[in-house]
Amino acid sequence: MPSANESKLKETLAGVLGIPAGTIGEDTSMDTVEEWDSLKHLNLVLALEEQFGVSLTEEQSFEILSYPLIKIVLAEHGIEFAA
C-alpha cells in the first residue's frame, strides 16, 4: 500500500510535469523524464513546499533531482513515507 504522502507526492509531480501519476516510480528523475527541465524544477520546488508545508533549503532545492531523492529530503522535514 502506498502511503498517503506517497500518493500526494506522485500527484504533485504529475501535475507539475504534465505526465500521468501512474508512470512515476523509483526511477523517475530529471534524467529520465523529458518534461523535467530546470524551469519546471523551479515550479516543482514551489509546489512541493506548498503541498507538504515545508521550506526547502537552497541546498535541498538542488538535491531533489529524482523521486527517491525528494522522499529523502522530505523525510528530513519529518514527512513520512512507507519504507
Partner: peptide, 15 residues
C-alpha cells in the same frame, strides 16, 4: 486553488 493544482491545469490546457 493550490499552486500544485494550477500546474496540473496548465499542463492539461497545454496538452
Amino acid at each position: 486553488p493550490s499552486y500544485a493544482q494550477y500546474t496540473a491545469v496548465a499542463n492539461a490546457l497545454a496538452a
